[in-house]
Simulated scan of single mutants.
Amino acid sequence: MSFIKKHIEQEKLNRRNFLFASAAGLGSFAAAGMFGPGMARAAITDPTIAWSYRNRTNPYWNEIVSGGEAFVQSLGMSKDALTHLINEGSSEKALADVKALLARTNGQLALAIDTNDAPNCRPVVEAVAEAGGYVSTIWNKTDDLHPWDFGDNYVSHMTWSDEKPAEETARILLEAMGGKGGVVHLGGIASNNPAIERLQGLRNALVDYPDVELLAAEPADWDTQKANQVMSGFLTRFGDEITGVHCANDTIAYGVIEALRAEGIEDMPIVSYDGNPQAVQLVAERKILATVFTNPHWGGGITASLAYHAATGAFKPSEEPNEHREFYGPTIMVTPEDAAEFKASYLDSVPSYDWADFWGPTNGQIQYK
């Protein structure tokens, strides 16, 4: 478990070293904004390619950005050609960084971004569209915001249909608990779409398990250190009433496992999400019952590719059907029985992807309730 402790320490170090970026240089942004939403400029010959994300200490986001770098390298560039906008989970910083980069590039930007929370997606998209840049988003946006309302500039949005896979992992967990006892849920950032869907997946499964009580559900902000603190608090409050743990992602599970180990608990049923390499190894060792792989390497590369190819005029997003503008990414359930095969196929050597096959592995148009 040494990698878990290392992960927690790295997050602590990351916080100490983190300084909010200045929003200086926004003065020229107004000039770049003359295009207006939906009024795309002529094709951009050499757009700046950027990824805006939380940080690389999180294994999931490291894979996302590695995919972005692989796409940039497929263009014959060094991976260093990818511009990194690291927001550390701050929506305000994410927006300020995007505006500053639009000003520096005069809007000649192909941006891939997770806006950190759903409400922040609109101001980011509006800023990019007004400057004449191109943006593809993943995970977080509000249901009333759609790429086709911004012509070509808002290229695409990809999320993952989390509710059903989260329900499937929950059923694995509840069965392992013998269909009785108490379960706790540690979630992501409360306003994040995947955090909401993954908790709902657990609630859906619980309907069929009346002898299992949901003792508590609290956000852990996708963070190992916070998850460790939340789980420690749960153990103090509920003690041996807890017989299973539902984690919204793998990095949360690492904090949970460390909190359990501190209390001498080694056999608690746990499920998680993301399919990070360390989590897959824990699944193979049956220390986690299941995780769900969302292929972040492909997601990171294809999101950057979509923004870039739209910016250079290789295709016009406005001429594509809606299912090519808003779509679900791929998911794979990983259990102890198939963890070794999965690891060999997806983690030990990363598959080669055709970055111009924009929608090949996708799972259909996003559906709203």
Results as ranks from 00 to 15, higher is better:
17 N>S: 07
137 T>A: 05
368 Y>A: 03
283 V>E: 07
97 D>R: 01
256 V>R: 06
55 N>E: 14
243 T>Q: 15
135 V>P: 00
64 I>Q: 09
191 S>R: 11
164 K>D: 12
270 I>L: 13
30 A>W: 10
14 N>P: 00
317 P>L: 02
198 R>K: 14
284 A>R: 14
282 L>A: 14
352 S>E: 15
300 G>N: 01
359 W>F: 15
210 P>R: 08
313 G>T: 08
303 T>E: 07
121 C>G: 10
152 D>Q: 05
250 D>S: 10
208 D>Y: 02
282 L>P: 00
246 H>R: 09
250 D>K: 07
293 F>T: 02
199 L>H: 10
269 P>A: 12
115 T>D: 04
273 Y>M: 14
314 A>Q: 12
197 E>T: 08
219 P>K: 10
37 P>T: 11
333 M>C: 04
187 G>Y: 01
353 Y>S: 05
154 Y>S: 02
105 T>N: 07
87 N>Q: 12
302 I>E: 00
114 D>A: 11
124 V>P: 03
127 A>D: 05
171 R>V: 14
178 G>T: 11
5 K>E: 12
265 I>L: 14
270 I>P: 04
365 Q>F: 03
286 R>M: 08
104 R>M: 08
40 A>E: 13
346 Y>F: 15
325 R>E: 04
351 P>M: 09
79 K>N: 11
6 K>I: 04
348 D>C: 05
240 D>Y: 09
121 C>W: 01
191 S>T: 15
366 I>G: 07
281 Q>V: 12
107 G>S: 05
240 D>V: 11
155 V>D: 00
268 M>G: 10
137 T>P: 01
209 Y>I: 08
154 Y>M: 03
312 T>G: 03
244 G>F: 09
235 L>D: 00
239 G>C: 08
106 N>H: 13
39 M>W: 01
272 S>G: 10
61 W>Q: 11
13 L>M: 08
336 P>F: 03
109 L>Q: 05
107 G>E: 03
300 G>V: 01
310 A>V: 07
78 S>I: 04
18 F>P: 00
288 I>D: 00
254 Y>I: 07
358 F>E: 06
180 K>M: 06
12 K>Q: 12
262 A>H: 10
7 H>L: 14
267 D>A: 13
250 D>R: 04
284 A>F: 04
107 G>P: 04
72 V>N: 02
165 P>S: 07
229 Q>C: 03
355 W>M: 05
155 V>R: 00
212 V>T: 02
336 P>Y: 04
283 V>F: 08
103 A>Y: 00
224 T>D: 09
342 F>P: 00
104 R>F: 01
165 P>V: 06
366 I>H: 06
99 K>Y: 01
280 V>W: 01
321 P>N: 06
143 D>F: 13
34 M>A: 12
195 A>R: 08
341 E>S: 13
295 N>P: 02
41 R>M: 08
114 D>V: 09
314 A>M: 08
115 T>E: 07
124 V>Y: 00
352 S>G: 05
